[in-house]
Design a protein around this nucleic acid. Structure first.
Lengths: 391, 391
DNA sequence: GACCTAAGGA
DNA sequence: TCCTTAGGTC
């Protein structure tokens, strides 16, 4: 039996808007840790992975793992019936053939209930690509959306190149060629870590991958030695944040510990990372504003505020932090990478921009690009194989 | 000869936007009392009745009744040429074959004049459904629009059910079922009155339907007996209205009397006021609207609050008042009703939402639904027969 | 395939 | 209220 209550239906609405054109049917895998979805796009070119972590819910209960096979279009329609600020509760009995969604208006004088028919969907084994990357770019999700949209007017594909110079997006079209260079904020460091995701946890994907990732990341960082001091700070911050989260966590038994342990850890990432990033930026940039929050060892402040008060934006604490960052672009690179991707997909991915202000791009040569939107309560990640021949 | 000046063209623009997809050609019947239009929709499933009362005009003169047959699409185009805040004057000579519309900008430095060709349209005899109903629901017009639009995503028809619990809108679709429950503000009272309108006056309507229905209604109402005291008042009102109607009724012999008899009464808490006011209007047409209802025996608690404090709502003339109410839903019910309607039409009706903040739904089992938007200067009402079989 | 109208979102 | 997107018609 599943009972999952979101304070605001908007998160779910945005997530479905983001994937509805990519995926027709998919299993929402519900477990103690939360709800995940992994699916190949209809043309089997891209892979999308969504996670809603258990502690991102106002209330979450899932007695045992259960897959909910839904038609994404139908679920989207049902979610359109929710107002953004409605409280949204997902209910499913153990062997149910319907998923019940209840929307309660803030005023509570309106209660809507929808039963969405479920379907059996073969869980295709998805190959989540490796998790260590040679380059990591964090930029404004709106800017990324703008870039790929602009370039899609000129050509079908974009070459993304990360170098000491920065990150360059270039497209050649029949009528015109174009390229955008983002210089990045502060010095270019090594890739700290892969996406911190939890996705590996939930589903079958290799844990091994993760581990390796981290390992790699750390080592690399050390190797550089340039930003070591920064790393130190980052770590601290991470821990601090992690703590905050734990405290906040009300219902979740789920352990967050990993966060603290690893350097990259866990789930926090989304948010924490941002902060870390920010810090880095600061170093480079000199702005310390962000720091404050992190600095405090105790909880509170921002994260809390952000998540609870602001909330509406949708994304949560992360947002607030992110907002501070502004449009600073963070570039981390172990080695030069140059990859070409179909703009059609990237434009599609960038629909997730309304979930969170930052997007992370992870790349290695000849390996699928990872586009990651980590919002407070979870993430949505896209994997896209590069075009061969670098055309 | 007709000369009718509206302070703002926007009302007319909105009215035409509201009916243009429903009606192709129609007669605007001009008389001393104002301008009315009644027409079946193109598929003869729904009926729309519009009235612009004489005193809603800044200036109104109509020497004798005259029908102005217009192509609604053409009139809509002509009205698109008016700015919302233009003063708009309709002119027609006695045997004219054109309707002249003059738009004067507030600044008065721009005057536009349009001549719309008129046509002869057979006045089809329209059967305006009965005027007493078992249930009356007043809600935000925007919310009603939202509800029918949402449900139209799921299915083709909606079951509207009014019970002690509130009013429920439910639709079953291929992929999902959904239902929205509105709890209503305050206690559920009896139906105070039918639409106060004048529509019965103007045109011929069919009465047969009414009678039977009413009979049933009464019995049920009596059973309840809760609000007896108030009944007295209601009856009076009812009678008054009924009389009006009778007098007006030209072709119908059908008796309205039952209305009065019935118990529907009133309790109305909140709404009595409105109604009374309206009734008064009807009688004379003159409008006593202000009568306000408090006079009525006592009002009841909450409902009152809701109705009075918030507002005034309703309907009538007083749009301004309506705003006060907020989104409070008022439910009046003599007996449980459950009816199924085509969502396509309801969605279409809800285009009138931009005319006024509240909409009233009047229902009795097996009888056409009345959806009424009463704005200050008149009203637009839609009648829609229920689907049989309650499918 | 292009144009126009209507509906929904910002 | 205006702009953008989607759907329907020509």
């Amino acid at each position: 039996m599943l009972e999952a209550r979101l304070a605001e239906a908007s998160v779910l609405k945005k997530l479905l808007d983001a994937i509805k054109e990519l995926v027709t049917d998919a299993n929402f895998e519900c477990s103690e840790e939360g709800i995940t979805l992994q699916a190949m796009d209809n043309s089997h070119v891209a892979l999308v992975a969504v996670k809603l972590v258990q502690n991102g819910f106002k209330k979450y209960r899932c007695d045992r793992p259960m897959p909910l096979g839904v038609n994404v279009g139908s679920l989207t329609k049902v979610l359109k019936c929710a107002k953004d600020d409605d409280m949204c509760t997902l209910n499913a009995a153990d062997e149910a053939d319907v998923l019940n969604l209840v929307y309660e208006a803030k005023s509570s004088d309106r209660i809507s209930s929808y039963d969405l028919k479920l379907m059996d969907i073969d869980s295709e084994t998805l190959g989540i690509p490796k998790t260590s990357y040679e380059a990591r770019v964090v930029l404004s999700s709106a800017e990324f959306a703008r870039i790929v949209r602009d370039l899609s007017l000129l050509g079908d594909s974009v070459r993304i190149e990360v170098s000491k110079e920065g990150v360059r997006f270039a497209s050649d079209g029949e009528a015109a060629n174009g390229n955008i260079l983002l210089k990045g904020q502060g010095p270019i460091g090594k890739v700290e870590r892969g996406p911190q995701g939890d996705d590996s946890d939930d589903e079958e994907e290799g844990d091994g991958v993760k581990k390796e990732k981290k390992g790699n990341g750390e080592e690399e960082a050390e190797a550089n030695g340039e930003d070591d001091d920064e790393d130190g700070e980052n770590k601290k911050k991470s821990k601090a944040q992690a703590k905050v989260k734990k405290e906040k966590t009300e219902d979740g038994d789920v352990e967050m510990e990993e966060d603290e342990e690893g350097d990259y850890q866990p789930n926090e990432d989304g948010e924490e990372e941002k902060e870390e990033e920010e810090e880095d930026d600061e170093d480079g940039d000199g702005k310390k504003r962000k720091k404050k929050s992190n600095s405090s060892s105790k909880p509170t402040k921002k994260a809390k505020t952000a998540s609870s008060s602001k909330s509406k934006k949708g994304k949560s604490r992360a947002d607030s932090d992110e907002e501070d960052e502004g449009d600073a672009v963070v570039i981390q690179m172990n080695s030069h990478v140059s990859l070409t991707f179909s703009l059609k997909y990237l434009v599609n991915f960038s629909k997730s921009s309304n979930l969170v202000k930052k997007v992370e791009l992870y790349m290695s040569n000849d390996v699928p690009l990872l586009v990651s939107y980590d919002f407070g309560q979870g993430y949505i990640r896209y994997y896209l194989a590069p075009k061969i021949g670098d055309d």
